[in-house]
């Protein structure tokens, strides 16, 4: 968690593609208002993230956190901006290749398929991964391999043959996360994937994300919960401004967790691991 010191506390941080894994430049969101007109959610935001980082993104609801992440994955029709991976502009990628590298994980888990195993295999049925599949182990999509991977991810309790709709919220969230993690994205944009989960499941999800960061993925998390000590950097999106805030001390984290802060207020604290 030493890379945090390099970042400055203003929105101008990280312009251009200078060495960062992922950079976003001049990100603007203009939403159509119901009944005509437009609202600008934010304008000209800058952002960057590197492999191994876990960046927490907080801010009041409605401030456009999800919009920002879907803009990064270039899924949002109301946003503009330029985005680059390793300094390469997203326009030089096909949309599919871009999203394979910069994976957005929605807040609600939509698992498609008859069984959990099918749901996890889904990304590998897409054309964009047909070449990648040839390089992977032949049994990568076998039940046994998926089982082993899920076990490693702490999903021992999830039966592969179950219908996705029969899973609990926590299980579905973990399967959805596992599905995306198995595709090995370079940047993982996790949109409040621990929302509505109990402490135990939230903890498991956080562990999985930390593990992905450890393997070199850049992780961006939207969070509303009390800090869990896994972030390496923390940013607040509020009133159209994206600011970097200092990581809280361990004491602040402990206090926040004791208080069991329900909703990550804008100045929510974050710190070093106190559990595990």
């Amino acid at each position: 968690m030493d890379e945090t010191t390099e970042a400055t506390a203003t929105t101008t941080a990280g312009t251009g593609g200078a060495g960062h894994l992922f950079t976003a430049h001049d990100v603007t969101a203009v939403m159509p208002k119901r009944g005509g007109g437009e609202t600008t959610v934010f304008r000209g935001l800058e952002f960057h993230v590197d492999g191994g980082e876990v960046v927490d993104l907080t801010g009041p609801s409605g401030s456009g956190k999800s919009t920002l992440l879907t803009a990064f994955a270039r899924l949002n029709v109301h946003t503009t901006g330029s985005f680059a991976l390793d300094g390469e502009d997203s326009d030089t990628f096909t949309p599919q290749r871009w999203r394979v590298a910069v994976a957005y994980l929605p807040q609600t888990s939509t698992l498609i398929g008859e069984t959990v195993a099918d749901a996890i295999r889904l990304p590998w049925t897409f054309k964009v991964r047909q070449d990648a599949r040839a390089h992977e182990a032949k049994d990568m999509l076998s039940d046994a391999h998926i089982r082993a991977t899920l076990d490693r991810m702490g999903c021992r309790d999830i039966d592969l043959d179950r219908a996705p709709r029969d899973l609990s919220g926590g299980q579905a969230a973990r399967v959805s996360l596992a599905r995306t993690l198995l595709t090995k994205p370079r940047v993982l944009l996790a949109d409040e994937v621990d929302a509505g989960l109990d402490e135990e499941n939230a903890d498991k999800v956080a562990d999985l994300l930390k593990l992905a960061a450890h393997d070199g993925t850049a992780v961006v998390r939207i969070r509303h919960r009390a800090p869990d000590g896994r972030a390496t950097r923390m940013m607040v999106l509020k009133a159209g401004e994206l600011r970097e805030v200092p990581l809280p001390t361990a004491a602040q984290v402990a206090a926040a967790q004791r208080a069991d802060a329900v909703d990550g207020s804008a100045d929510g604290a974050q710190g070093d691991g106190t559990e595990e």
């Binding site: 899924l75 949309p95 929605p106 889904l122 990304p123 897409f126």
Partner: peptide, 16 residues
């Protein structure tokens, strides 16, 4: 809505 966006986020083409 949610399904299509999830599939796109996972790298699906429009057709898929």
């Amino acid at each position: 809505y949610a399904e299509v966006n999830t599939m796109l986020a996972l790298g699906a083409t429009k057709w898929e």
